[in-house]
Simulated assay, not measured.
Amino acid sequence: MQNFSASPRELVASLYRNRSLVRALIKREVIGRYRGSFMGLLWSFLNPIFMLAVYTFVFSFVFKARWSVDSDSKAEFALVLFSGLMVFNIFSDCINRSPSLIISNVNYVKKVVFPLEILPWVTIGASLFHAAISLIVWIVAYGVFFGEPSISIIFLPLVILPLVFFIVGLSWGIASLGVYLRDVAQFIGIVVTTMMFVSPIFYPATALPEEYRKFLYMNPLTPAIEQVRDVLFWGRIPDFKLLAIYTIISMFIAFGGFAWFQKTRKGFADVL
Rank of each mutant, 00 (worst) to 15 (best):
residue 105 N to D: 05
residue 260 W to H: 14
residue 31 I to T: 13
residue 163 L to I: 09
residue 264 T to Q: 11
residue 172 W to E: 07
residue 34 Y to Q: 03
residue 221 L to T: 06
residue 219 N to H: 06
residue 95 I to Q: 03
residue 207 A to Y: 10
residue 101 L to N: 02
residue 107 N to Q: 07
residue 244 A to K: 12
residue 146 F to M: 05
residue 197 F to P: 06
residue 11 L to W: 15
residue 150 S to T: 11
residue 15 L to E: 07
residue 196 M to G: 01
residue 231 V to W: 00
residue 231 V to A: 08
residue 243 L to P: 06
residue 209 P to I: 09
residue 61 F to Q: 14
residue 10 E to Q: 15
residue 227 Q to G: 00
residue 37 S to Y: 09
residue 14 S to L: 07
residue 34 Y to K: 01
residue 88 F to D: 07
residue 134 S to Y: 06
residue 251 M to A: 15
residue 246 Y to S: 10
residue 125 G to K: 07
residue 221 L to D: 01
residue 26 I to A: 05
residue 48 P to Q: 09
residue 143 G to D: 05
residue 67 W to H: 00
residue 56 T to I: 04
residue 17 R to I: 07
residue 134 S to V: 11
residue 47 N to W: 15
residue 43 W to G: 01
residue 195 M to F: 15
residue 149 P to G: 13
residue 142 Y to M: 08
residue 117 E to S: 09
residue 180 Y to V: 05
residue 156 L to T: 03
residue 74 K to G: 09
residue 13 A to I: 07
residue 50 F to H: 00
residue 91 F to R: 06
residue 240 F to Q: 04
residue 60 S to D: 09
residue 53 A to T: 15
residue 102 I to G: 00
residue 32 G to S: 02
residue 130 H to P: 03
residue 117 E to T: 00
residue 33 R to N: 03
residue 256 G to W: 00
residue 270 D to E: 02
residue 50 F to N: 00
residue 1 M to R: 13
residue 16 Y to H: 12
residue 147 G to Y: 13
residue 213 R to W: 06
residue 207 A to I: 13
residue 1 M to A: 15
residue 256 G to Y: 03
residue 267 G to M: 00
residue 121 W to G: 04
residue 85 L to K: 02
residue 167 I to L: 04
residue 77 F to E: 02
residue 252 F to Y: 04
residue 68 S to C: 03
residue 120 P to H: 02
residue 196 M to P: 10
residue 141 A to G: 05
residue 263 K to T: 09
residue 106 V to F: 12
residue 105 N to P: 10
residue 242 L to K: 09
residue 210 E to H: 14
residue 176 S to D: 01
residue 163 L to V: 10
residue 164 V to E: 02
residue 247 T to L: 11
residue 113 V to T: 13
residue 261 F to P: 00
residue 11 L to H: 14
residue 114 F to Y: 08
residue 40 G to I: 13
residue 9 R to A: 15
residue 238 P to A: 11
residue 237 I to M: 14
residue 234 W to V: 05
residue 96 N to G: 12
residue 50 F to E: 08
residue 129 F to W: 10
residue 21 L to R: 08
residue 118 I to E: 12
residue 260 W to T: 11
residue 31 I to L: 13
residue 210 E to Y: 13
residue 118 I to Q: 10
residue 20 S to D: 12
residue 87 V to C: 08
residue 45 F to D: 01
residue 135 L to G: 00
residue 151 I to S: 13
residue 130 H to D: 14
residue 232 L to Y: 12
residue 135 L to N: 00
residue 75 A to S: 11
residue 149 P to I: 09
residue 198 V to F: 14
residue 126 A to P: 00
residue 163 L to A: 08
residue 159 V to A: 00
residue 257 G to H: 05
residue 183 D to S: 03
residue 66 R to T: 12
residue 177 L to V: 12
